[in-house]
Design a binder for these strands. Structure first.
Lengths: 149, 149
DNA sequence: AACGACAGGTTGCAATTGCAACTATATCGG
DNA sequence: CCGATATAGTTGCAATTGCAACCTGTCGTT
């Protein structure tokens, strides 16, 4: 194969991996330091919050937060155990469930956001100008499915 | 806190998370489809390859591939079990070990690269021009420690 | 030397993730 | 209507990751 990537592609790729891992690690640490659950919990709760009264099907959650169905299923087990969400049998599809966020879920979301937001600022935003943030967002959106979130 | 992130920062942040997760997933799948071990194995073997005859201390590996010491320790257990690396007691520091890549390790590295490289091209490089790759690399390097890899 | 603080590694344990197999329901072609 | 196929979700199992406790050896101070 002359299918070897360009040197520039390798550098950009490496930095994508590193930047993600480093920033995410910092954010997760901030959450843990504040005795809050991991980021994924926030992601799911946020989607359910946005969905409002209609709730979401589990596969919709999976699509939104890029989690395979098994993992959605088990993450919801944990969230349900903490009374942050409720699963309800689904009218229109006998196989499926519909998931709703509870009051406690909303409350946790509200408690997490200040910490999460501050962590984003501290470990990400502060290193860029607004132009650079736009540039970065535009560049990354070139990858398939990235802009859909 | 009025420390809430700018909307643009949130978008860029979200896309960083999504682009990483999507691309990495695709690459890992390509490796698995070729019956090859996960990316981390490649990372570690590559560092050891670069280090040459002197090998590396475990903590150096950890720094290079962003893995905590426990995880380095156990990843090396697996690699050693497959005879891809060797651990050797360390002369200059009685606590530590020095790690070397074996012939089998070099061989696996050589088998993985074509698949890995093709996957980088297919799920990443092809969506950018060379200018964009440079831009992306430059932007990401603004984050602390990202440029060091 | 002797002390305590610290650094390099290992191990036990819990949480998370990925994969494959499974159940139950929908849907589509005939 | 019926069977083949696909979809929604769950569960069991193995690999990986993160955290905390631990052991050993180093180093700086006294």
């Amino acid at each position: 194969m002359n299918e070897e990537p360009d040197r520039r592609a390798i550098i950009a790729w490496t930095r994508l991996l590193r930047s993600h891992q480093l920033s995410l690690e910092r954010v997760e640490k901030a959450l843990k330091a504040a005795d809050l659950p991991p980021l994924r919990w926030y992601d799911v709760l946020l989607e359910l919050h946005r969905a409002g009264r209609d709730g979401l099907r589990q596969f919709e959650i999976g699509n939104a937060v890029l989690l395979s169905k098994h993992n959605v299923s088990r993450l919801l087990d944990r969230l349900e155990r903490e009374a942050l969400v409720v699963r309800q049998a689904c009218d229109e599809d006998g196989r499926g469930a519909r998931v709703f966020i509870t009051e406690a879920g909303h409350h946790l979301l509200a408690r997490m956001w200040p910490v999460y937001g501050a962590a984003i600022r501290a470990s990400f935003e502060r290193y860029f100008s607004v132009q650079e943030l736009d540039q970065l967002a535009t560049l990354l959106a070139r990858l398939p499915d990235v802009g859909d979130g």
